[in-house]
C-alpha cells in the first residue's frame, strides 16, 4: 500500500496531460469561487462583495464578452447559494443512505427473515419514482409539520423543514440503491474469505466487518460514482417541495426575467461542474484505496 500510494503521489505532476491540466484548473476555479463566495456571503471572510453582489461588476465587463455572460454573472451569487444546498442534499443523502445501506445489504446477503424485509424495502423504493416519494414525505405523512415544529429548524444556520424532508427522502431513496450496489459487491467476494475468517476464530459479524466488507466496499466504488452523480442531478427534484437549491434558484431567476437560455445554461454548467468533480473525486478514491487483486483496478475482469 505504502509503495503504491507514494508512487501515485509523486506521479501526479509528472503524468498530467494538457486535458487534465485544463480540467484541474477549471475544477480549482469552480470550487475556489464557490468557497470564497459562500464564506463571503456568510460573513466568515470579507472578499469585498456584499452578499448578493457579484465579485465582478457586470456593467464594467469588457466589450468583447457576450452580453449573456455578463447577464449570468449578475446572478452567480444567487446560484451559489443554490449550489450549496445541492451539495448539502447530495452529501447528506449519500452519507446517511450509506449508513442505512450497509445493514440493509448485510441483511439481504446473510440474513434470513431480515433478508426478505430488506428485499421488500429496496424493491419498493427502487420501483417507485423519487418525486412521488418526496411528495409522500412532504405532503402525506405529517413529517413536514413535525420537523417544522422542532426547535431551531429554519433559524440561523439550520435550514428549514423542507430541506430536512428532502434529506430524509434522499436518504431513504439512496439507501435502497446503495444497498443494491453493496449487495452485489458483497456476493462478489468469495465465500471462502468468510470461511477463513471464521477459521481463525472471528465471529460471523466480525468476519463480515473485517474481511468481507473491506473488500466488498472496494468492489462497490463504481456503483457509488453512479449514485453520487445520480444524487447531484436528482437533488433538483427538491425544488418541487420548495427547497431553494440550484434548480429552484434558476427557475426563480428565469421566471422574473424570462432569460431562459442564459439562466439554464448557467445552471447546466454548474451541474456539470458538480458531476464531473464527483466523478474525478471517485476516480481518486478508487485509485487511492486500490489493492492488487481487489476491485476493478488491476483486478479481476
Amino acid at each position: 500500500m505504502s509503495e503504491t500510494a507514494t508512487r501515485s503521489r509523486t506521479g501526479i505532476f509528472r503524468s498530467l496531460s494538457p486535458g487534465q491540466v485544463v480540467t484541474a484548473a477549471a475544477g480549482i476555479l469552480f470550487w475556489g469561487w464557490l468557497a470564497v463566495r459562500l464564506l463571503n456571503d456568510w460573513g466568515v471572510v470579507d472578499a469585498g462583495a456584499a452578499p448578493d453582489e457579484p465579485f465582478v461588476d457586470p456593467a464594467g465587463l469588457p466589450e468583447w464578452i457576450p452580453e449573456w455572460v455578463a447577464f449570468a454573472v449578475e446572478f452567480l451569487p444567487q446560484m451559489a447559494s443554490g449550489v450549496y444546498l445541492t451539495v448539502v442534499l447530495t452529501v447528506a443523502g449519500i452519507t446517511f443512505g450509506f449508513v442505512l445501506a450497509v445493514p440493509l445489504s448485510i441483511a439481504r446477503v446473510y440474513g434470513t427473515t431480515s433478508s426478505y424485509l430488506s428485499l421488500a424495502f429496496t424493491e419498493l423504493i427502487r420501483g417507485t419514482p423519487l418525486l412521488v416519494q418526496l411528495f409522500v414525505l412532504y405532503y402525506g405523512i405529517g413529517l413536514t409539520s413535525f420537523l417544522g415544529g422542532l426547535p431551531g429548524v429554519g433559524q440561523g444556520w439550520v435550514p428549514d423543514e423542507a430541506v430536512w424532508v428532502a434529506i430524509v427522502g434522499f436518504t431513504i431513496n439512496s439507501a435502497a440503491y446503495q444497498a443494491e450496489y453493496i449487495r452485489s459487491a458483497l456476493i462478489s467476494v468469495e465465500e471462502s474469505q468468510l470461511t477463513a475468517a471464521r477459521a481463525i476464530g472471528l465471529s460471523k459479524l466480525d468476519g463480515i466487518r473485517y474481511v468481507v466488507l473491506p473488500q466488498g466496499l472496494r468492489y462497490a466504488i463504481p456503483g457509488w460514482t453512479n449514485e453520487l452523480v445520480y444524487l447531484i442531478k436528482y437533488s433538483s427534484l427538491a425544488a418541487f417541495i420548495t427547497v431553494p437549491e440550484l434548480f429552484h434558484q434558476a427557475q426563480d431567476i428565469s421566471s422574473n426575467n424570462f432569460r431562459y437560455t442564459a439562466v439554464f445554461t448557467l445552471a447546466g454548467v454548474l451541474y456539470l461542474a458538480l458531476v464531473i468533480s464527483a466523478a474525478k473525486l471517485m476516480e481518486t478514491v478508487e485509485r487511492r484505496t486500490s489493492i492488487p487483486g481487489v476491485g476493478r483496478i488491476k483486478g479481476r475482469q
Binding site: S236, F247, A250, S254, Y260, F264, A267, Y271, L272, I276
Partner: peptide, 19 residues
C-alpha cells in the same frame, strides 16, 4: 453524451420547453 448524462433531466426539460 457527457453533457446529457451530467445534466438533470429537469434542466433538459426546461431547455426543451423554454429555450
Amino acid at each position: 453524451g457527457v453533457v446529457l448524462r451530467g445534466t438533470p433531466i429537469l434542466v433538459i426539460f426546461f431547455f426543451g420547453y423554454f429555450v
